[in-house]
Simulated scan of single mutants.
Amino acid sequence: MSTHDFRALHERLRRETARSTADGRRGALRHVTPERVVAAAAEVRLGHTVSLAAPIETVPGADDPEPAVHRMTGPAPDELGADGLHFATDRFAMNVHGDTNSHLDALCHVVFDGELYGAVPAGDGAGALSVDLVEDGIVGRGVLLDIPRLRGVPWLQPGDHVTADELTAAEAAQGVRVGPGDMLFVRVGHRLRRTELGPWNAATRRAGLHPTTMGFLAERKVAVLGGDGNNDTAPSAVEGIAFPVHALAVQALGIHLLDYLQFEDLVPVCAQAGRWSFLCAVAPLRLPGATGSPVNPTAVL
């Protein structure tokens, strides 16, 4: 995709979103209405809950040079065998926007041409568009589209793109349709490949969505986009724009992204139930002014 075509697509999506947005601060979450949350509750039929997050990595790897740090801070050595009451305690630190751990991107995470979503100056973003916007969580209908399943392969190869036509074809093959206010989850098989073949430098090569798929999300009024990779392909499909999907989804459309989820536990449950939609709850940490948060989305079928 040429830089010219990318910028034309970005401007079109930005303008269309601006015309239809009454509450610019909430972005695409405006599509998650109370009525749609109530309707999403009807997706629960089995009472089965499934985590969409991967275990947090604490060991350096090819795709995770700065892993999370977990340190048990208590009990003290002299308390281990002592009588009385003592507590085990912990301390964590994390590079939220790395290439391994599951996380949410806030609307202040992506700056393009000096602006954030809604033409907010980049310098004003921490207060206006931070993760505070989702402090009450996001609850609604989730839809999983499994692209390797569509292609008949275990995973997409690093560098491969998911197209808009494939999203439509996956809907037809799985008997589901993405609608307004939905959380769209697109599986490329990143996690399965990593498990089977080991970590690699995902910053340089990974499967993801082609930038033109953002037109599909805009048309369907998708509220949240989640993937088992970074959502963006590497190398980028657009010369000079390293993360075009992030720029289009977050900065132009106001869609919160969920990166590096894992769907390997969800896929067999959906396949056995014959349903690829479910109630989904996303609960970021309450981190005032933050550009993102570790997250553990939960599907309820």
Score class of each variant (00 low, 15 high):
Met1Ser: 12
Phe6Glu: 08
Arg7Leu: 15
Leu9Tyr: 12
Leu9Ile: 13
Leu9Trp: 10
His10Gln: 13
Glu11Leu: 09
Glu16His: 11
Ser20Pro: 04
Thr21Trp: 13
Asp23Arg: 10
Asp23Thr: 10
Gly24Ser: 11
Leu29Cys: 01
Val37Trp: 04
Val37His: 06
Ala42Val: 03
Ala42Asp: 06
Glu43Trp: 00
Glu43Pro: 00
Leu46His: 08
Leu46Pro: 01
Gly47Pro: 09
Pro55Arg: 00
Ile56Cys: 11
Pro60Val: 11
Asp64Glu: 08
Pro65Ile: 11
Glu66Thr: 14
His70Glu: 15
Met72Trp: 12
Thr73Trp: 08
Asp78Thr: 06
Gly81Asn: 13
Leu85Val: 11
Leu85Ala: 13
His86Glu: 03
Asp90His: 14
Arg91Asp: 05
Arg91Cys: 09
Met94Ser: 07
Val96Ala: 06
Gly98His: 01
Thr100Cys: 03
His103Glu: 05
Leu104Asn: 09
Ala106Trp: 01
Leu107Arg: 07
His109Arg: 06
His109Phe: 00
Val110His: 02
Val110Phe: 05
Phe112Glu: 15
Tyr117Asn: 00
Gly118Ala: 14
Gly123Asn: 03
Asp124Trp: 04
Val131Asn: 15
Glu135Tyr: 07
Gly140Gln: 07
Asp146Pro: 00
Pro148Asn: 02
Arg149Ser: 08
Arg149Gly: 11
Gly152Lys: 05
Val153Gln: 14
Glu171His: 03
Ala172Pro: 08
Ala173Met: 15
Ala173Thr: 14
Arg177Ser: 11
Arg177Gly: 14
Val178Glu: 07
Val178Cys: 11
Asp182Phe: 02
Asp182Leu: 06
Met183Phe: 05
Val188Gln: 03
Arg194Ser: 14
Thr195Val: 13
Thr195Ala: 10
Glu196Ser: 09
Leu197Arg: 09
Asn201Leu: 07
Arg206Gln: 12
Arg206Val: 10
His210Ala: 11
His210Ile: 09
Pro211Glu: 12
Thr212Asp: 14
Met214Thr: 14
Gly215Ala: 13
Arg220Ile: 00
Val224Trp: 12
Gly227Tyr: 04
Asp228Lys: 05
Ala234Thr: 13
Pro235Met: 04
Val238Thr: 10
Ala247Ile: 07
Leu248Arg: 02
Val250Trp: 07
Gln251Met: 15
Leu253Ala: 09
Gly254Asp: 10
Gly254Pro: 05
Gln262Glu: 14
Asp265Leu: 06
Leu266Arg: 00
Val267Cys: 00
Ala273Ser: 10
Ser277Cys: 08
Ala281Gln: 15
Pro288Asp: 08
Gly292Thr: 01
Thr298Val: 05
Val300Pro: 13
